[in-house]
Design a protein around this nucleic acid. Structure first.
Lengths: 347, 347
DNA sequence: ATGAAAGCGCTAACAT
DNA sequence: ATGTTAGCGCTTTCAT
């Protein structure tokens, strides 16, 4: 197929090892003259090293895996783009996988990636238990989890990167409270995932701190039957809002589990004949690009996505490139509230 | 590292070639008894073939490249997800690259992918010329372009898959015309890419067919300076709509180059004190998930994305797996108009 | 029906 | 300072 290191060696009148030495930054032990000759040969022949051979020999590739619930979701799309950007600057490529939040798919992907020689993966999951990927971690897979805080029973040597969901949800809820809302709603998918649970905890904590009974809040958390999947956070928000707002004693302020869900709430409110920002206030979570585009512009809890993505990549890379395992750690990023027009005092 | 084929062979009391034969579907020439023994050994040892070794030997990998402008854009995110889904069913993986519509990045990625042993790529580009990737194609890279129709001077053996942009834009424009609009606007990024140009042509064709002078239309196509990039189609739509709608003799109906741009137009209209679906009608292109979620729901030209994605993958795979090159061809998909609430008769 | 052996392209001891 | 060489794990003729 392509030009091999032997042909370069012959062209330059040296041995393959000299070419290899140059290629691997060991040009110090080489006559400048020789070096120039080899470099010229490489250029003349348009030589490019065969990665498969390199990988077979060295056991590693400059590729990381990225497992997200679904890139069709703008939040994950944006995250993927940032990860890819960070990887690119370090000469790494990104293998993309959509898990649909299915543990079996997560595990299956990690195994496939491992077979591909990929030894580092950023796994975006919020599953409370990581037992399904434990065998891989034991074999040496370096894992950075994103969107999931450390849990008891996690394997050692793991890095977790997540926004502080409790604080974020508190900020959102306190904002509604400070506007004068007293009857609040919380709309989410099933609370089985740790980040949703944490956001819910933050929501309740804020209510308690304000002297309210959190059990009076209207909570819509899709039951075990996963009708909507992750893809359709918007569909879920829409159905939930429609039901809640047409029910008895509807809330005047709603905390949505994330921005896509909040956009669904917009639609559901419309279906129910209410207007967001007037009849009902809505706060989201994430601050996706669309949040500032919709009408009314969405008040939301911002995740510093670009920073988090490059932190995740950098951490993974350093663990990939340095032999030391380290104890692993958790990074909890503090989010901030971005106030826009979807939240107003109650009528 | 892992278990090798030699260990399996020893465990089963056979030679490596027998194991390899089994692995490669040549189990017919084998005593059922032997076969069972090998299979048991594989299972017992948890053997998984080393892909790098396989690739080095065979020269191919079950990986395709996917180059999109940016997965942060929901349209491309959705497309990427569909491609990955199609690939998965055939045991292929997808290496994701964001080109930002930069020819240098496109070329750079293709070269990197080639070095990785990836010989098939779905390239989402609308660049009129493909000269920057020609060297790779000559070396044997199989290319399927998406979102770009065949152009004169294209290398042979190329498959192009695209929606019929001319027809799509015509449908959009005719719809506005049939509603009674006479003063129309067209909002787009620079018309340097073939799909934008085609949509613009369709827009003009519909105007001409209706007996209108297309030069009377208000056309906003961002000049050479790329202030917004592809990422920010929405920002562009917003700025354009704001300017156009506050200018003299504003249009009553607007065709936006795509849905993200249309959502920007919504915001720009709002900035200008107009309401979409009442004061001004807007048609988009793509039918992303959000189109049905926003207020008013967006009338748009639907691209059958899932079908197009699997067609693109299937075509690439068949060219990858069969030695014949074939003449290459273009697939022009006919889009359909989805009428929603953003378009109404002019006031 | 099964095995032996060469070699894919590269790297790193280990020579010289 | 540079060259020789032995594999990394797999597949595939070519033997047996």
């Amino acid at each position: 197929m392509g030009v091999t290191i032997y042909e370069v060696a012959r062209e330059a009148g040296v041995s393959p090892s000299t070419v290899s030495n140059l290629l691997n930054g060991r040009s110090g032990r080489m006559l400048p003259e020789t070096r120039a000759r080899v470099e010229a040969a490489i250029r003349r022949l348009g030589y490019r090293p065969n990665r498969a051979a390199r990988q077979l020999r060295n056991g590693r590739v400059q590729v990381i895996g990225l497992v997200v619930p679904s890139v069709a979701n703008p939040f994950w799309g944006a995250f993927a783009r940032h990860v890819e950007g960070a990887a690119l600057t370090q000469g790494y490529h990104v293998l993309l996988c959509n898990s649909e939040r299915d543990p079996d798919r997560e595990r299956g992907y990690l195994e496939e990636l491992w077979d591909d020689g990929v030894t580092g993966v950023i796994l975006c999951t919020s599953l409370p238990s990581l037992t399904h990927v434990l065998p891989l971690v034991k074999r040496g897979l370096k894992l950075v989890t994103f969107d999931r805080t450390a849990q008891a029973g996690d394997p050692a040597g793991l890095t977790n990167i997540s926004v502080d969901n409790v604080v974020g949800a508190q900020l959102a809820t306190e904002h509604l409270l400070s506007l004068g809302h007293r009857r609040l709603g919380f709309i989410s998918g099933a609370l089985g995932s740790v980040n949703r649970k944490e956001r819910y905890d933050g929501f309740r904590a804020a209510l308690v701190a304000a002297g309210l009974d959190p059990d009076d809040a209207v909570v819509w958390s899709e039951a075990y039957e996963d009708t909507f999947g992750d893809l359709d956070a918007a569909g879920l928000g829409r159905a939930a809002a429609r039901e809640i707002l047409t029910g008895a004693n509807p809330p005047t302020g709603i905390v949505a589990i994330n921005d896509m869900c909040a956009l669904g709430v917009y639609a559901g409110a419309r279906d129910a004949g209410r207007r967001v920002g007037t009849d009902v206030s809505v706060v989201g979570f994430d601050d996706i690009v669309l949040a500032d585009l919709v009408d009314p512009a969405l008040t939301t809890v911002r995740q510093p996505l670009a920073d988090m993505a490059s932190t995740a990549f950098d951490n993974l890379r350093s663990r990939l490139e340095s032999p030391a395992t380290g104890p692993g750690h958790s990074l909890l990023i503090r989010p901030e509230l971005v106030t826009r027009s979807s939240t107003t005092p109650p009528v």
